[in-house]
Design a protein around this nucleic acid. Structure first.
Length: 273
DNA sequence: CGCCAGGACGCCC
DNA sequence: GGGCGTCATGGC
């Protein structure tokens, strides 16, 4: 990773990042691709900061209007730029399937997202498809002026007052997550520091949070890279390529490996959304 | 129209 | 403990 400061923002050089692969692969739902003169441009936000980022060419990016302080204090961490993904992929590539997955979409990175937003987003994701997940979260943020609401703000809602989301049976789960978090019964910052099995149990005390959603919150919202969400696609990968279990040497970063595999298995079965 | 979606719950055995 | 119907909504 390298960067330079320009009048129009931060110019970032990072060969192991591709914006389409990272921002549109189902780990985050609030980035939108906007038309531009570049390869691609995305707009989105993390906590209360909005970002417009362009991919100028493979491995080169412009973070529009971002100061060095904002870059070092926020976006460097969000895009996990202090982790060496070349080294990770080199380790993964001992395995034949993982090797293919890494070379298919080598620009995927694990974003360090906000745990609360992540919890609500993956509650919404259950038995749902990505375009509709984005729609529900978009309607939620629209109501709060384009930002993601705090637990305290959602804690006063009911499934009826959340009807505008059209989130279906998931509304009652959003309410439970909000009231528990706002009341301090669930402490996401505390859970983030727990041993992983205790963290899983604590998350699953929330109604609507089962093994899959808990694992996603741990991986995407708490950067627990050993967390390994198993959805229908990863089940197919495990059945087809890992009948004797996932490689032990990759266990510490199994969640990152899972990202490459998810993208790969969907591509070879003809899915892009 | 039917099938499926980055699942979890409640109930059954 | 595993198996199965159900849950809203909408993309395709």
């Amino acid at each position: 990773m390298d960067y330079s400061i320009r009048p129009d923002g931060i110019l970032l050089s990072e060969p192991d990042l591709d914006l389409n692969e990272t921002l549109d692969c189902g780990q985050a739902f609030r980035w939108t691709k906007t038309a531009s003169d570049y390869e691609c441009t995305y707009e989105g936000s993390f906590l209360n900061s909005r970002l417009v980022i362009s991919q100028l060419r493979p491995g080169e990016f412009l973070l529009h209007g971002v100061s060095e302080e904002e870059f070092l204090g926020k976006w460097l961490s969000y895009f996990d730029l202090d982790t060496n993904y070349s080294e990770l992929k080199r380790q993964f590539s001992e395995d034949e399937t993982l090797s293919k997955a890494c070379s298919f979409a080598g620009g995927i990175r694990l974003l360090r997202q906000d745990s609360w937003e992540c919890l609500v987003s993956f509650i919404i994701s259950q038995n749902n498809n990505i375009p509709r997940i984005k729609g529900i979260i978009g309607r939620l943020c629209d109501k709060y002026g384009g930002r993601f609401p705090e637990a305290e703000e959602l804690a006063t809602e009911t499934p009826d007052t959340l009807a505008y989301l059209r989130s279906g049976f998931r509304a009652k789960y959003i309410c439970d997550a909000s009231s528990r978090t706002a009341a301090g019964i669930t402490s996401l910052s505390g859970i983030a520091e727990m041993p992983i099995d205790s963290a899983r149990k604590a998350l699953m005390e929330i109604k609507g949070v089962g093994p899959k959603v808990a694992e996603c919150v741990l991986l995407y919202g708490m950067h627990r890279t050993e967390a390994f969400p198993i959805d229908v696609w990863i089940k197919r990968v495990l059945a087809a390529y890992y009948p004797d279990g996932f490689p032990e040497y990759a266990a510490e970063n199994a969640g990152i490996a899972q990202q490459y595999l998810f993208h790969y298995i969907r591509s070879i079965s003809g899915r892009t959304e």
